[in-house]
């Protein structure tokens, strides 16, 4: 697998962008007419989709939909970490 620190940085960045979306989503649930918040949501949605796709192509599929995009894809690849394993 490619450089592990690059991979962890990219995964961390996805977490940051996803957190923006999660928090905005709850805000929009109770403030559905806030156009500025809606614009932010749409903006970061596109960024996150691209990041998840790029990560999946480079390292391992974060979502099963991107199995096909992952280089040298193998089902249940033993080199793919599980979310709860931690980096240590």
């Amino acid at each position: 697998m490619a450089n592990k620190s690059d991979m962890n940085r990219m995964l961390n960045d996805i977490g940051i962008v996803d957190f923006i979306l999660v928090d905005l989503m709850l805000y929009l649930d109770t403030h559905p007419h806030d156009q500025a918040a809606l614009n932010y949501f749409n903006h970061y949605s596109k960024i996150k989709s691209k990041m998840v796709h790029d990560f999946s192509v480079t390292y391992y599929p974060l979502v099963k939909e991107y199995n096909e995009s992952t280089k040298d894809f193998r089902w249940n690849n033993p080199n793919t970490p599980l979310a709860w394993e931690g980096g240590c």
Partner: peptide, 11 residues
Amino acid sequence: SYENRLQFPVN
């Protein structure tokens, strides 16, 4: 659907 990552890192 499932994303194979945690919402906040645990290491």
